[in-house]
Each structure stands twice: as C-alpha cells, then as structure tokens.
Write a protein that binds this DNA or RNA. Sequence first.
DNA 1: AAGTAAATTGTCACATTTGACAATTTATTC
DNA 2: GAATAAATTGTCAAATGTGACAATTTACTT
Lengths: 192, 192
Amino acid sequence: MGRPSLAEQRKAEILDAFGRCVARFGLEGSTLEHIAEEAGMKRSILRHYLGNRDDLVHSLARKVIADYRGITESSLDTFRDGNRSTNLVDFLLPTQAFGSTEQLLILEGLIGASGKYPRVMKLVRGYVEDFVDLVAQQLKLISPETARSRCWDTAYALVCISFNQESLQPLKLEPKYLKAARKMARDLIKNI
Amino acid sequence: MGRPSLAEQRKAEILDAFGRCVARFGLEGSTLEHIAEEAGMKRSILRHYLGNRDDLVHSLARKVIADYRGITESSLDTFRDGNRSTNLVDFLLPTQAFGSTEQLLILEGLIGASGKYPRVMKLVRGYVEDFVDLVAQQLKLISPETARSRCWDTAYALVCISFNQESLQPLKLEPKYLKAARKMARDLIKNI
DNA sequence: AAGTAAATTGTCACATTTGACAATTTATTC
DNA sequence: GAATAAATTGTCAAATGTGACAATTTACTT
C-alpha cells in the first residue's frame, strides 16, 4: 500500500552529493543549497530524508567510514592472489585516481572540522587506528619473521605517506611526487 | 602630521587571529565575525585594514607562506651546530607542539579550499615544492655520497610523514603514533 | 475508482554573513 | 588650540543559509 519508498536510494544519493561537495569546498563550505544542487534535488528534500545539518554531517561521517572500512577490508582480502607487497603499494598509492581518491579528501574535511563534532572525531580516529593495524597485519604476512612493533611502525609510515599524498592532491603536484612516494613505500616494505 | 598609523601592526594582529580561526574552524568556517572577536576588534576594522573576504584570504596565504619560509630557512641554518640528523627529525616531528604546529593546520585549511582560490594554490604548491627540496639538501649534507635523486625521494617521504602527523593532530591520537613517526624518520635518514 | 503512504514542491520566518559608507573619536603637528 | 590624518565605531541593506511546516503530486494496493 502507498507509494514505494525511495528513502534508501535518496539518502545514498544525497550523501554522495554531500561528499563531492566536501571534497571540493570543505565541510563548512558545503551549504545545504550546494548539496541539493549537486544532488539535483530541492533543498527541502534533504531535510525530509536526513534531517537538519548536523544529522547530515553525522550520516556522512558514518557512511564514509563504513565505505572505507568496506573497501579496505575487501581490497586487503584480494591480496591472497599475487604479490602482497605490490598489491599493498598499489592500494596505498594508486597511480590512477579511482573511487577512493575523493574519499580521503572527505576524510580530511571531516578531520578539519572535527573540533565541532566530537562524535565524528571519534569515528575517524577509530578508523585511522584500525587502518594502521590492518596495514601492519599485511606487513606481518609479508614478512612473518619481523617483530610486530616494527611492522606497526612501518605501517604507520606507509599510512602517513598514503594519506599525505592524497591530501595534497588539490595542489596538483607533478607526477614525480607520486613516483617518489611509491618508490619509498616499496623500499620501506622491502627493508622491513 | 595626523595620527600615527597602526596599519602594519593591526594587519599582523588580524591575520594572526585569522590564522587561529582557520586552525580551529577551517577556512570556510572562519567568518569575519569570528576573526574580529578573536582579534578583539570590530568587524568593520578588518575591512578597513585588509579589504573584503577574498583580500583577507590572500593576505593570510601570503603571510603564512612567508612565515613558513622564514622559519624553515632559519631553522635549517642552525643545523650547522649539533647533529644534523637529530635536528632534522626534531624539526619535522617536534615532540612538543611549538609555534609551527598550528601553522600546518592553517596550511591544510588553505589547501582544502584551494579549489576556490587558484592564487593561493600556486603559493602553497610552490612552498611545498621548495620545502621538499630544502629537506633533500639537508640529506645530501648528512650523506654527501648518496645520489641526489635518492635524497630527494627520501626527503619527500619525510615531508609526507611530517605533514600527515600534523594534519591528524585534531584527532588527538595517542603518543605512540608520534613516536613511531619519529622512529621511522630516523630510520629513513640512517638508511639513506 | 478509492484509499493511502510516501515523494516532492512551495513558502514563510528567522538568523548569519557580508559589503559599503557615514559619523565620530583620537593623536600628532604646526 | 586649530588643522589634519588616521583610528574606531555605528548602521543599514543585500545576500545567503537554515528550520519548520503546509500543500500537492505520484504510485501502489485492494
């Protein structure tokens, strides 16, 4: 009975548009009007599906983190096949921008404004911590004889290089920077 | 004749306040009202000394970059005395937050919103490029027999770790992350 | 075709942000 | 103390962002 609900689909579309806006204008720079235009909807509909601004921000944070965890987990799972080191470098420092490139910009936006949203801060921090742990796990698989602590330290360095490479993306640095990042990442893994 | 001008001092105070706001609220989150309150002045006075919002943003970018270049240059100069490696690590990854910690957050804010301000983007990019070059120079001094290209790659990795460590600061990560960063930085320099 | 649940649009009031300019106050020089 | 240059404050209009709710349209079920 009644009209079929588009709620889930609409929510996803709205949050996608929100994400694209954050990647371009930052969190505070993304007005509801911006988001609505980006999503091709009226502003009033955002409120209808997701509530007020704060609700939107929290929903976005949850979605981005959830997506990230999903992507991370499934990517790392595929590492069974092929060279784990190579796969890890390709995952952390992809040569061609794919989906997740924009996502790290959203993450940066959320981090930047996390002073205002303590719940968001906790979500992001939790993800970063888990992410480092997962990378450390991979390193342990690559080199089982290496001490856990050393794997972890190296993992954090790799994550730093990966995150920073992405967060500098708006500057449109020359390709040699990405090349250097990949080279150093390979070295770090090799010399573990 | 006439009243003495406070212009230079006032401009500096305003931009300092602006910087603190950006570090806390992000660039778009820093309203003129915010900045005025932070500076302890009326909003109208911002306009009097520095013009409209865009003018303020560009002035801030110029000042931050100029300060950065100054700090960087003078810090690296002092490296004559003492252990260059240790000094470099302390400079890139200070154990206790000093002045420049807030500045990197400002830089991040400017990067994030650089889509809107192409001139700002160019300024920041130029600084990042020069910064990597300067660190590479230091590495060459530490290990003259190492190839220039290897110094440069390592320098970029160090810069990534440094920048990322600072940009994650709002998440209030545990000290072990900074410790790992410093350890890996020392390793990178040692194994150059 | 009637009923109904949900989508979609429209609109109003309120607060915030910004830009521009006029009016006033203050400190210095002659 | 008169002239003057600059600081400082005040005010107003325009634009934008936000929240809330009413009204309408659409698609499905029976």
